[in-house]
């Protein structure tokens, strides 16, 4: 039974490490499928984290926390969308700027929350089911955002490949000129995709301050936005592969700490390096396989659209 307990503990921590990556990644995947590369993920997660914490702490409701986390990310995506869509600004530079802005804004608005206790998202508890050994706690004992992350992946997968609107979105990302000529509103589709991405990134950030560690600390996103960006490449823009990537990364991030717990003597700094080094390794491996990448990369990714007249 002790072994079961350890396995359960490991799986539970992997879920908490993977969920923010999955949430932010699925939003970015949709934005990139529409042709917009938003490098501001890290900034949107940061404002989501502080927005979620503030919403929950001020109202005493974690539901409000979830909503305000999503809204904060969405709000920060608005200037980005305006710049790169309507003003045809350089997406790489603007995304970087958004990250700097988001980290600065979150640090400033979050200052009054440093050291305050936060609210933790309640976990599901179904009598009879949640108490099943190992599986019960893992499948029926998670918080709302974990279930939302999987629902989002399923919904996006269905939307992108099974609906007409999803086809239109992919068309905008693959050839904005053709899409425009077919009468698809390129700007509107991209706006929607970017705002959705911002909302998801905000939720991912909110997960950090509402579930991962229910408190606010500066720089608590710690590069997760960038890792999520790498995961979208790893997933070659396919929603279900994103789940694999996020959980693989959650495992890498967590296994180091469990190894330390089991008596492997490594400095904590080297264990903290693991996810970043793993990201580099994954990028190298996935980028070598150019055929797979080319098949799924949105052809207009990163290119601004200015209608010809």
């Amino acid at each position: 039974m002790a072994d079961f307990a350890i396995v359960t503990a490991i799986v539970l921590t992997v879920i908490t490490a993977a969920t923010p990556l999955l949430l932010a990644g699925i939003g970015e995947l949709v934005a990139e499928r529409a042709g917009v590369l938003n490098l501001g993920l890290e900034g949107m997660m940061a404002v989501g984290a502080v927005g979620g914490f503030a919403g929950a702490a001020l109202t005493g409701s974690t539901t409000v926390g979830i909503v305000s986390a999503g809204l904060a990310g969405l709000l920060l995506a608005v200037p980005f969308a305006f710049l790169v869509i309507n003003l045809a600004a350089n997406q790489v530079a603007t995304g970087l700027a958004l990250t700097l802005l988001g980290l600065g804004a979150s640090a400033m608005f979050g200052e009054s929350f440093i050291g305050k206790p936060g609210l933790k998202l309640p976990a599901l508890d179904i009598p009879g089911l949640t108490s099943i050994p190992v599986v019960g706690r893992i499948v029926f004992g998670q918080d709302a955002l974990v279930y939302i992350s999987f629902l989002l992946v399923a919904a996006i997968s269905w939307f992108l490949f099974r609906t007409r609107a999803g086809l239109m979105l992919r068309a905008v990302g693959d050839s904005h000129d053709s899409a425009h000529n077919l009468g698809i509103p390129v700007y509107a589709v991209r706006w929607a995709a970017v705002l959705f991405g911002g909302c998801c990134a905000g939720l991912g950030g909110g997960y950090l301050s509402l579930a991962y560690t229910p408190l606010w600390t500066e720089n608590m996103t710690a590069g997760r936005g960038w890792i999520a960006l790498a995961l979208v490449v790893f997933a070659s823009w396919l929603p279900w592969r994103l789940v694999v990537g996020a959980y693989l990364f959650g495992a890498v991030a967590i296994l180091g700490f469990h190894a330390q717990g089991l008596g492997v003597r490594v400095s904590s700094q080297f264990i903290s390096m693991l996810p970043y080094l793993a990201t580099i390794a994954v990028l190298v491996v996935i980028s070598r396989n150019k055929l797979v990448l080319r098949a799924n990369t949105p052809a207009c990714l990163g290119r601004p659209f200015v209608p010809a007249r």
Binding site: L83, L87, A89, N90, L96, A97, L100, L101, G104
Partner: peptide, 18 residues
């Protein structure tokens, strides 16, 4: 807060790119 500086810097770049 010293973080106002970071906000200013980020704002400056966003507006500049626009």
């Amino acid at each position: 807060s010293a973080n106002v500086t970071r906000l200013f810097q980020g704002l400056l770049l966003v507006i500049l790119l626009g």
